[in-house]
Simulated scan of single mutants.
Amino acid sequence: MMPFVVAELANLEDALPLYVYCVGNHEQKRLDRREGYPAQQIFLTRSGRGAFRLRDGRQFTMTPGTLFILPADVPHEYFPDDADSPWDLGFVAFRGNASPLLLEQMGKLVLSVLQAADFDRLWQQLESLWHLISLNEDQAYWESSKKMYGIALSVMEDQRSVERMAKASASSEPNAALATAVRLMHDHYNEKLLTANVARAAGYSVQHFHRLFVAAYGTTPQQYLLRLRMRRSVQLFQEQPGISVEKVAELLGMETSYFIRMFKRTYGRTPKQHAKN
């Protein structure tokens, strides 16, 4: 958990066009903000589910892997929506002269529950921001301003990926074949899958399959499979506390040394460091 941290800016508000107001995550309880909140907010749901309700009656339900962008000063309340599962909600609030322009640039992403294409990446950026703010140092606030802008860009980039994947799945025959290939990856990610075998299952040559896959998903089949394995490794560490790195690598069908190297490249820290946190 990242306990709620309020930024103590040491009079840097006027110097920073964008600055973090608060950041954290916790098991969210019901909260009523009849006057709204004096900062723009981005919320990330890691587990459980909850709902935001606006004064005009609109309600937005968040489920695991989703994000929600809420403008400043919008009256609202939010609350867990599943009595059997805690709502693990991450959040960052930001202000500054540039913050309204940033939300304007996000356009239709605001006040809409969004499924993240790469939720783990966004959550890690949130954690990194929290660690910076926790230092409570002058330089940390300058760095956190940069990271805050980075999170906003990542959200927009992430949703472009979602749109691209949706367009790919909406087109006809080639993407039906690609969907077969993707299902094969999801069902057999823990085996030694060769691209040639996946391409054959989709009915294409390796070269043609590679071109179609990159055009549809914006990444290569090998990178997609690696990303799938990395996400699954994070789930295994969460689901089975104390599980060894070697066991996770085995369950993913990867050599331990290769798994450690790819995990660090993906998340910026080793599997052991991640498990400890």
Rank of each mutant, 00 (worst) to 15 (best):
E137W: 04
M148F: 00
G90P: 02
Y141S: 03
N175G: 11
N190G: 00
L184K: 03
V198N: 01
A179I: 10
L89N: 12
R121V: 07
L109A: 12
A170H: 10
R183Q: 14
E163R: 14
E173W: 00
N197Q: 15
W87D: 05
R200K: 15
E163S: 13
S161I: 12
A152D: 04
A181Q: 01
I151N: 04
F119S: 07
E104A: 15
T195G: 12
Y141I: 08
K146D: 04
F91E: 13
A181D: 04
I69E: 08
W123C: 05
A199R: 02
L70V: 10
R200E: 14
H186L: 07
N175M: 13
A199N: 03
V92P: 02
P100S: 06
Q125S: 10
F79T: 11
A168G: 15
E191S: 00
I133M: 03
S144D: 05
H186M: 07
P75T: 12
T195C: 01
M148N: 03
G150E: 07
E137Y: 07
A181L: 02
P174K: 02
H131E: 15
R164M: 12
L111D: 03
M106S: 09
A168N: 01
Q105M: 13
A117R: 06
N197M: 09
L89V: 03
Q124F: 12
L129W: 01
N175A: 13
S99C: 07
L194F: 11
R95D: 14
F68L: 07
L111Y: 09
P71E: 06
E127A: 10
E104I: 06
M165H: 14
L135I: 02
R160L: 14
E77A: 14
E191P: 00
K192S: 12
S172M: 10
A170V: 10
N190V: 00
V110D: 02
L126A: 06
P75C: 08
